[in-house]
Design a protein around this nucleic acid. Structure first.
Lengths: 193, 193
DNA sequence: GCATCAATTGAACGATGTTCAATTTCATAC
DNA sequence: GTATGAAATTGAACATCGTTCAATTGATGC
């Protein structure tokens, strides 16, 4: 049984990504295998390789979707009036992380094979996220030059990232009794002067 | 051929950890397998399971050693006169990360199987690191309560962690042309008010 | 020298990512 | 309707992985 026009090729890819997302959500990235994804969508393992170069490619695409979802959430938080934005952004960020801890883990813990780089289409996604925050917080930042504002934004972003990944891997709770979210607010408050 | 008194049991464990460390240093955590470690020390795969519960256990112990090495480096940096400490600590931190990027990656990217926690002896190692920084920077911090100082310290620590892991996975270079180290200094400067 | 015991082995198992020749289905042409 | 060709799908095969464990080996105590 080949060629099922059950699903157009694009549809099939969407199905596979959705299945992968579900597996990671339910049991973490360790449960994500090519065979499980195939089984879940009712195809043979080999079919996955028509849709993705390999398992790493599939993972990167799931991660990209997670990044997109984060962008949506942050865009909304950035609509708030300027002075409320820092709080809103931090809240939105941690709400997102806490609602998808396993997808979040995979997003930042997955490593490509040595020497392989993230695909070119990945960079704009990350850059868009940073720009979003930079523009939302720009009016509130003390620094004058655009370069300095960019540096401050990236630092905040990396800082939030650090807090959330340590929290998700339960390494933060080992050394702090303060909620991750509170540390995030502290960080942003200080970074904005 | 059994019982080689070539190596006492403790010595053998040390050898295995050193072999694992070398493999990760040379080719990253993806190259680390039980069979490769065994081969490298001239034993059969099964022997590794006399020394470690499983591969995850071995990895956690390599990671613990990395953490210990970081502590050594930071202790030295903390000897400086109080006002020079922030700079020195940040420099020492990034020197360390840049000198062992692959060990560093594994330290924070490795995940235990779902539901398994880090061993109990791991917590004090992390806590000691935080205390070290907290005590070194305490005199320079504007906050009054010990709780607030702890929160600020953890935030700095998590922030540096975020910056360095994004840098090591080359995600930072995608969005910032500022050197990670400079972002680290910026973060600490702001966090210390 | 013999028996005991623990360390060590390596074959075996199930599962993994990946490949690819063979098969099956669909669209098209007649 | 049927034949043809292209394309999608299959699933067996391969190498490798983590892990287990009965068998084997070497040292130790008597």
């Amino acid at each position: 049984m080949a060629r099922r026009s059950d699903h157009a090729p694009e549809e099939l890819k969407r199905l596979a990504l959705e299945a992968a997302r579900a597996i990671v959500t339910e049991e973490g990235s360790r449960g994500l295998t090519v065979r499980r994804v195939a089984e879940r969508i009712g195809y043979a393992p080999g079919t996955i390789y028509n849709l993705f170069a390999n398992l790493d490619d599939l993972i990167v695409q799931v991660n990209a979707a997670t990044l997109d979802a984060l962008a949506v959430v942050l865009v909304e938080a950035a609509q708030a009036e300027p002075r409320a934005r820092p709080e809103r952004l931090v809240e939105a960020y941690f709400d997102f992380v806490e609602s998808r801890p396993r997808l979040w883990s995979m997003l930042f813990e997955h490593r490509l094979p040595e020497g392989e780089d993230l695909p070119d289409w990945y960079r704009p996604k990350l850059a868009a996220l940073i720009s979003l925050v930079a523009e939302a917080l720009g009016p509130l930042m003390p620094e004058d030059s655009a370069v300095a504002r960019q540096a401050a934004t990236v630092t905040m972003w990396a800082g939030l990232h650090g807090i959330s990944t340590l929290a998700v891997s339960s390494k933060l709770a080992l050394v702090a009794d303060t909620k991750p979210r509170a540390l995030g607010h502290l960080l942003v408050r200080r970074m904005l002067g």
